[in-house]
C-alpha cells in the first residue's frame, strides 16, 4: 500500500456498479461512511478507501481485504452517504466476487459461516443451529470458540438436538438450484 497507485482500467468499477446497482463513481471521498462505521476500528481498509480503490481498478487489494468480511451490513454508510451510494450493497457484491474468484480471502470465518448457514437452509428449509455450528466449525477450523457456552444454551432450551423441518424442503432445494443458475447469468 506504500506504492503509488495508478489508474489501470475501469473494468472493476463497471462490474461492481452493474452487480450492486450502486453508483460507486459518484463517490467524492467525503469519508462520511467511514466516520460512522461501527466496524472501522477492526478494518484494514475503510469503506471510503474501498470506494477509491474500486475507482482505481485495484481488484486484488479490494477482493483480498479483511474489510469486506468485517462489514456487519449495518447500512449506516448507505443511510448517510450524501451521494446516495448503497455502500452496503457494494460490500455484498465484493464478497460475492471474492468467493467466485477464489481470492485469497482476508478472513475465511465469515464466508465459512455463510456457507454453513445456507447449507442448513438448503437441507432443512430452515436453520438448524446445532448442525450449522458443527459444519461451520469443520469448514472454518475454528473448533473451540463458544463450545463452553453450549451447556448453558441447552439448559435455556436455546438449542435443539433435532432440526425443525419445513414441509417445503424440496421446493427450497429447487429454489437454491435456480438461484445459483440465475447468478451465473450476471
Amino acid at each position: 500500500m506504500n506504492d503509488t497507485l495508478e489508474w489501470t482500467d475501469n473494468a472493476l468499477l463497471r462490474e461492481v456498479e452493474r452487480r450492486s446497482g450502486a453508483s460507486v463513481s459518484a463517490c467524492f471521498q467525503c469519508h462520511k461512511c467511514s466516520s460512522g462505521c461501527p466496524i472501522a476500528p477492526d478494518m484494514d481498509l475503510l469503506s471510503s478507501q474501498i470506494m477509491r480503490l474500486i475507482h482505481l481498478g485495484e481488484k486484488e487489494t479490494v477482493l483480498e481485504s479483511e474489510a469486506i468480511w468485517a462489514c456487519a451490513s449495518c447500512e449506516a454508510c448507505t443511510a448517510r452517504c450524501p451521494m446516495g451510494i448503497d455502500i452496503a450493497a457494494v460490500m455484498d457484491t465484493l464478497r460475492m466476487m471474492a468467493v467466485e474468484r477464489k481470492a485469497a480471502l482476508g478472513d475465511r470465518r465469515t464466508s465459512s459461516f455463510n456457507k454453513a448457514f445456507l447449507s442448513s437452509v438448503r437441507w432443512h428449509g430452515r436453520v438448524f443451529e446445532l448442525g450449522m455450528m458443527t459444519l461451520y466449525k469443520l469448514i472454518s477450523r475454528d473448533l473451540f470458540s463458544d463450545v463452553d457456552k453450549v451447556p448453558r444454551m441447552l439448559a435455556k432450551h436455546k438449542l435443539t438436538f433435532l432440526p425443525h423441518f419445513s414441509r417445503s424442503t424440496k421446493e427450497v432445494r429447487l429454489v437454491f438450484n435456480r438461484a445459483e443458475e440465475e447468478e451465473k447469468k450476471r
Binding site: M96, N114, R126, S166, S168, A179
Partner: peptide
C-alpha cells in the same frame, strides 16, 4: 404455512438471487 428461512445475512452476502427468492417464496405462501 410451511414457511422457510428468509436467507438472512448469509444469503445477501453470497447470492443476490437467493436473497430475493427466499422472501418471495414466503410472501407468496
Amino acid at each position: 404455512p410451511d414457511w422457510v428461512c428468509c436467507g438472512s445475512s448469509p444469503a445477501h452476502a453470497s447470492n443476490a438471487s437467493l436473497s430475493l427468492a427466499l422472501p418471495a417464496l414466503n410472501l407468496h405462501k
